[in-house]
Design a protein around this nucleic acid. Structure first.
Lengths: 253, 253
DNA sequence: CACTGTTCCGTATGTTGTACGGTACCGCGT
DNA sequence: ACGCGGTACCGTACAACATACGGAACAGTG
């Protein structure tokens, strides 16, 4: 994966905060940072992050590939810009006021991000170290931290809890995205895949050797129609984590 | 990322379970499935999954690139084989007996996987949908499920809890791997990166607009020397999740 | 010694990001 | 009206990637 740290920070930040947005030339394709980012998001939403290439973005805009580099240092910065742009979507319905119980507020934060990842599955495939220091991402972080005010947690605990929640969302979203992408790529549903493997597995999987796996695996497969239902994994995990956070908060009062 | 579903399951499973291990030719490089997988693991351990190419594996074995395809259908299957191979490492110190409290057993499972990911950071970058149906991965699943026997949880709850724990390990490991890889790629520590951005951020980040983010961000940055300490995130998250699991188990008795 | 199946490999194709050098245009000062 | 400088735009080129295809070299068997 690409890294952002290559160019100078001033350039990257100016891009994110849209200092000086150039109008572009008149006759040709009116390339703008905004238009490039929008096209890139469209492609990634439709065909995934792997299908996002500089060539495709340029084609989609009726421009030559290298023209993009006039406006954007490289692909890594483009992805950062895409991320900051879509992060704005989590701000739209205003967050609930502090009177609301913290658990409802945190649950709301989790589901906002879950929805965001549904609309933009490629988000889960981007690197998360070194946050994108754009206006929307910063605002998102600010609002989400507010979900924990009044709980008596220390600043570090607050950040840790939020990190854990967002990490869980991202992880679940990644699994979901991989599942659907694997499905479209291989033209095989999980059920079909299991059916194709089942006959050979019967000869290899000795119930004597793997007693628990055999028992639990069968029950799980019967319950959801597939082995891992990402939606269920998300909700179950969120509920469990919130219970754990409740224990932490209870111990502080 | 590559997908495994391409070839026929019989071939893949035969590879994983090492039915018929061919000795190879005498004069040339004695290529074997095992030797290829071992070389691939070595490369991925050293230089990451991005550096793992068929060329490099072949070079490392003194063979031509295309010779690998005699033994292995493609790169996707190679990665599956690598995964099943290293998964054996979690089995080595025998798991604690069922008399041990479930929380200690689950904690042990988490730390086994955490250690595994430290040794093989590329693991976190592989696709996790559709489990690798090899002998070691199956044994791993079996032993890990046993950490929850006697807790009164249903089979589905047992699987969900294990999935949550492993997902947390994987997520934390990914962050850690990305951090170190970003560090080596950009030759910049996180602290240096923040220092490079700080002067420009002061002009852009309005404390009026982002009050909570400014306050918490400062406290967090001061506490750990970097913004996100992956080790801390792992331990904190694990503790919180285990508290949540305790609540679930308590509600079942 | 010939035959057959498998191991091994050289070449070629279509991708990718982007470095480099060039062209054409807009707006500005005069 | 005119020229000029800066910038938007683009064509070509390169290295690295997985792998399809067809051929060559060797093993064991008759």
């Amino acid at each position: 994966m690409e890294h952002t740290g290559r160019g100078d920070p001033a350039r990257s930040l100016a891009l994110l905060w849209r200092t000086r947005e150039a109008p572009g030339r008149k006759g040709g394709p009116g390339l703008t940072v905004t238009s490039i980012v929008r096209a890139a998001i469209h492609i990634a939403d439709t065909d995934g992050l792997n299908a996002l290439s500089m060539r495709r973005v340029a084609d989609h805009l009726g421009a030559a590939t290298m023209s993009l580099y006039t406006h954007i240092p490289g692909k890594a910065e483009l992805i950062d810009l895409m991320t900051d742009t879509v992060n704005a979507e989590t701000l739209d319905p205003p967050h609930p006021p502090p009177i609301t119980p913290w658990r409802d507020r945190l649950n709301d934060v989790a589901h906002r991000n879950w929805r965001l990842h549904q609309h933009h599955p490629w988000l889960a495939a981007t690197a998360t170290t070194r946050p994108v220091l754009g206006p929307n991402t910063t605002a998102k972080y600010d609002r989400e931290l507010n979900a924990l005010t009044g709980t008596g947690l220390t600043p570090i605990e607050t950040d840790s809890v939020l990190t854990l929640i967002l990490s869980h969302v991202s992880s679940s979203a990644r699994t979901l995205a991989e599942t659907t992408r694997t499905h479209t790529d291989t033209q095989l549903t999980d059920a079909q895949w299991w059916q194709a493997h089942a006959p050979h597995l019967e000869k290899l999987l000795d119930p004597q050797r793997y007693p628990t796996a055999a028992a639990i695996g069968a029950a799980v497969g019967a319950a959801h129609n597939t082995a891992h239902d990402p939606h269920h994994a998300f909700e179950f995990g969120l509920h469990t984590i919130l219970d754990g956070v409740a224990a932490l908060i209870a111990s502080r009062t």
